[in-house]
Design a protein around this nucleic acid. Sequence first.
DNA 1: CATTAGAATTGACAATTATCAAGTGTTTGG
DNA 2: CCAAACACTTGATAATTGTCAATTCTAATG
Lengths: 244, 244
Amino acid sequence: MRPEDLPEIRHLHLFRDMAQANFESLMASSYAQIFPQGLEMIRQGDPADFLHIVLEGSVELFAQWSGRECTMAVLRPVSTFILAACIRDAPYLMSARTLERTRIILVPASDLRAMFRHDTEFAVSVINELAACYRSVVRNAKTLKLRNSRERVASYLLRQSLLAGGVASYILPVEKRLLASYLGMTPENLSRTLRLLEADGIKMDGARVIITDREKLTVLAQPDRLIDGSDEIAGQTGSGLPDR
Amino acid sequence: MRPEDLPEIRHLHLFRDMAQANFESLMASSYAQIFPQGLEMIRQGDPADFLHIVLEGSVELFAQWSGRECTMAVLRPVSTFILAACIRDAPYLMSARTLERTRIILVPASDLRAMFRHDTEFAVSVINELAACYRSVVRNAKTLKLRNSRERVASYLLRQSLLAGGVASYILPVEKRLLASYLGMTPENLSRTLRLLEADGIKMDGARVIITDREKLTVLAQPDRLIDGSDEIAGQTGSGLPDR
DNA sequence: CATTAGAATTGACAATTATCAAGTGTTTGG
DNA sequence: CCAAACACTTGATAATTGTCAATTCTAATG
């Protein structure tokens, strides 16, 4: 692991509050690895031996069943993944593959489990992290069950704009076929839906999204902080989403 | 709270391992409440002030958006709910209503948050509980995205049979319209699907499910421990589901 | 026991979404 | 720069799922 990695990892909520000595001990047993693009680094069902931290590149979490697969999330630096499997010492529920050349830190799950018994501040951080992850998946399930595909696309586009600071135009952060899978639809359906949304305030130009009529898009997307928001730190207002 | 409630609560994984004095302290600030049938006891968006424990009756967790609603889970004794919202001191993401007359213990969220900083064993229990909840929602999201409604129904029916010990016949634990919403479909669609599944090894008689051809149903349902399983305690085999 | 409200079913139909196939565009590696 | 691979789009069609309306069934209540 490079020495310049440590501060970046240390800044993560998960590691921010633990004692320095404990952080160093955890990092001492961890190591970095670089994966080429398109490598399936985690296969669902395998035992969870390492907490993963993305430092560079990007990673797709996906699930498979009966010959089908779907994208569950895309992770970018700096973030951790598959914490829950590590904690429960259980098989991964999702697979992971790199979307580009990616540098990952691997933290042994057993050290992790030992550490939160030893360092209360770290335990509290793990609790907060897991609670946030849980709520994030619940939001996801809500969008899948309550919105149809057109509404999911519209709210996704609006949310991305807000995440980028309310800009009127931005580049999609992922390929469209991957976005389609993430949103629970086929690439063909996404393609047609994006076209149809040109009547509702957006315009596509390749991977560029241009919001031409935010009011109209908002009426369709009905953004909701209990779905599209994220758990902000107390005191921050966050996404600028309405209460309901 | 009744004195006979305490052992039941104490047996929950969440409270099993904490110091007795701490458990008593937590319970001392908690109180019981009885709700009539059909009462909306939690409204999504409200601040999370109490961890809830169902002691008698049953509770539906549901989500609302834009005039629609869907069932997210049904809880029965003895179990806790909305732990994550309490921990993050954030608004509830789901609403809750009683499905029958229900007795609930309310544990103040602030006491809860103070307690896991104070009692390491409790912190570890919270970590394990949250990780299990997270994995449970991920399984849910997987079934929604990877299976069509027929497959969701089939795997639900098979799973319930296995949970009841592999019985060939059992009563549905919830009303069909609620089951439909839980499975992400309309009551009409569920009704028709159940009828169609009579060609695939099941037979319905009111709320009774009769599995007439387990092999055939299994071929359709393709049960998968990474979706239909639950995080068993190490050493136990659990649901009897295949690895893939 | 009769009444009634709500659950469940069924049919007809509409909307949504997926599939298949063909083609266009874009990127990448030799 | 060219060729190949792959993403994306579009059209035609099929499958799935939802909606609306009308019964039938079931369970709770007075």
